[in-house]
Design a protein around this nucleic acid. Structure first.
Ligand SMILES: [Mn+2]
Ligand SMILES: [Mn+2]
Ligand SMILES: [Zn+2]
Ligand SMILES: [Zn+2]
Lengths: 124, 124
DNA sequence: ATAATAATAGGAATGATTACTATTTATTTT
DNA sequence: AAAATAAATAGTAATCATTCCTATTATTAT
């Protein structure tokens, strides 16, 4: 894998935020320093970076978002503002149970915990 | 909500399968008895049925699938054949913990357990 | 049956993502 | 260093799922 200017920038943008950005947001950011970068290049690089293990893809409803944090973790999703908040919640204990009950071999668990984040709490 | 022929059929199709079908599959099935039904009608009715609480929408990667089973449950997703298998796994115990740690109010937990289903087991 | 209104078919529009291609950029070979 | 090889790019067209639009039709209430 070559390290083009564009690829470095896409990677850097994803690595610099905790917002789990969309391809379009990465595109907008990238244009600030590479004005004629194309959206296709952003998508191609996001995919390549995922394949090489640099980033992960998260499907939020029907749109893809990207995450620099590749270790297993889950997300709180605020239905009010759409924010995704990282949460580490490892419970490998379900794996053997699922294996036994369903003869299903577990690779990973993807969990979205949906609710309302603290930004919207009404203070009394 | 009126009960058009089309709406009844869409509902019936979703209720008759455990395959968590896509809109397109429902459309194909519906055409068998209502040849000139339109895809827009299928989508409109799936949405309406969800709003009325008859069915649920599941996002599988970036495509929507529909589920007649509206009680909270989760899914095993086979990365080999794409099947979604229902699994009841309720652990409300995480709710208070998340509330405390993140001041995040949990509505529901959406979990995809990804792995390989028994259809692909190599028998020795 | 009439009037009021909800739903439909069919097609256009949208939004996200991928595919295509001629050109540019980087790496390897002479 | 020049030529050959390979990878990546910009720009654009195409695809796919989904939603929107509108004139017409079906359902329901009076
Ligand atoms: Mn994350
Ligand atoms: Mn289900
Ligand atoms: Zn929020
Ligand atoms: Zn399978």
């Amino acid at each position: 894998m070559r390290f083009s200017h564009q690829r470095q920038k896409v990677r850097e943008i994803v690595y610099k935020t905790n917002s789990h950005p969309t391809a379009d947001w990465v595109f907008t950011e990238a244009k600030k320093s590479i004005p004629n970068i194309s959206l296709g290049t952003v998508y191609r690089n996001l995919k390549q970076l995922e394949k090489s293990g640099y980033i992960k893809t998260i499907y939020d409803g029907n749109i893809a978002r990207y995450d620099w944090k590749t270790e297993p973790h889950n997300h709180l999703k605020c239905k009010n503002c759409g924010d995704l908040i990282d949460i580490v919640f490892l419970d490998e204990s379900i794996h053997p149970k699922i294996k036994k009950d369903f003869k299903f071999n577990v690779d990973k668990v993807e969990m979205f915990i949906i609710g309302t984040c603290k930004k919207h709490a009404k203070h009394s």
